[in-house]
């Protein structure tokens, strides 16, 4: 394996990991506030289709990403209204949001299928990325750098800020947080909207980095991997970064190993495709064994907040 090939694999794996990382970071904040939103896949699809529409109409990538974030956040707020204000079941409502997002994106995207979208390229001058070694640092889409910055920002927010502490308190013990005067529902609304915006930006990655087009169901299940990843990472941002890149590495190695052919191809095709999921199961087993069976999930995850009862 030459250095060039290693660099090529790294560049592809970073691209494959970024949408999963962005969506999982958003979901991590949502879950830390005690809300389980299973609608990530639907919100990603909404983000993807809005991105394509805005890029094709205005030609402005940044406006497209902003609109994708807003649209997905708006969809997340529908979920928020149902689960937070009306105390609907979060699992069922989240699944409904995925179905809504799939249907909405298919309908809204009809005029935009069959059109090529310009990619969002590295913000650095091309000379910087001309040398393969420098390309590993400077050769990515701005969304990649954004996702890495967000890992740090979310870690800092949850760990070091007062607002982050309140968010965690709401997720760990909503009644206590409520009794000392924190607006539990308000905090959760903000978290849900933020999670939606991040899923929307994750959706933008598909047409802007991976495959510059719109087709129905473009994200093909990456949102579900993001959901699994939050558990995989035990709700920690830096572990999430490692997990997302590990998933990306497995997905990328699969196609590179198949393309290499011959002796490289030690595993059957179907087993390669199953590897990310097998890895998830393995890590979950290891985590729960080490913690003696106790989970690191926020204590109020998925429970409706009903202070009067």
């Amino acid at each position: 394996m030459t250095l060039d090939l290693v660099i090529a694999i790294i560049i592809t794996l970073v691209g494959a990991s970024t949408p999963i990382l962005l969506a999982a970071l958003g979901e991590l904040v949502v879950e830390k506030s005690g809300v389980l939103n299973l609608g990530v896949e639907g919100m990603m699809l909404i983000g993807a289709v809005i991105t394509v529409a805005v890029v094709l109409v205005t030609g402005n990538h940044w406006l497209a990403i902003a609109c994708a974030a807003l649209a997905a956040a708006a969809a997340a707020l529908i979920f928020g209204f149902l689960t937070l204000s009306l105390s609907a079941n979060q699992v069922a409502t989240g699944l409904a949001l995925t179905i809504l997002g799939t249907g909405f994106s298919a309908l809204f995207g009809q005029p935009y299928t069959g059109k090529a979208v310009p990619l969002l390229r590295s913000p650095f001058p091309p000379e910087l990325a001309a040398d393969p070694v420098w390309r590993v640092i400077f050769g990515y889409s701005p969304l990649v750098y954004f996702s890495l910055i967000m890992v740090f920002v979310i870690w800092w927010f949850l760990k070091k800020t007062r607002a982050g502490l309140i968010l965690r308190a709401v997720g760990e013990n909503d009644l206590s947080a409520h009794s000392i005067g924190y607006p539990v529902i308000g905090v959760r609304y903000l978290a849900v909207a933020f999670g939606g915006a991040m899923a929307g930006i994750a959706g933008s990655c598909f047409p802007l980095i991976l495959t510059p087009q719109w087709v129905e169901r473009l994200t093909t299940g990456r949102g579900w991997i993001a959901l699994a990843l939050v558990v995989f990472a035990a709700w920690r941002p830096f572990r999430l970064l490692g997990g997302a890149y590990l998933f990306g590495l497995v997905m990328t190695l699969e196609v590179y190993a198949k393309a290499a052919g011959g002796g490289f191809r030690v595993l059957p095709s179907e087993l390669w495709a199953a590897l990310p999921y097998l890895a998830t199961i393995l890590v979950l087993v290891l985590i729960s064994m080490r913690r003696g069976g106790s989970s690191s999930a926020p204590a109020c995850l998925g429970k409706p907040f009903l202070p009067t009862s």
């Binding site: 592809t12 991976l210 169901r217 473009l218 093909t220 997905m251 990328t252």
Partner: peptide, 8 residues
């Protein structure tokens, strides 16, 4: 049908 994987 998995456009992102086909591209990779």
């Amino acid at each position: 049908f998995d456009p992102a994987k086909e591209a990779d």
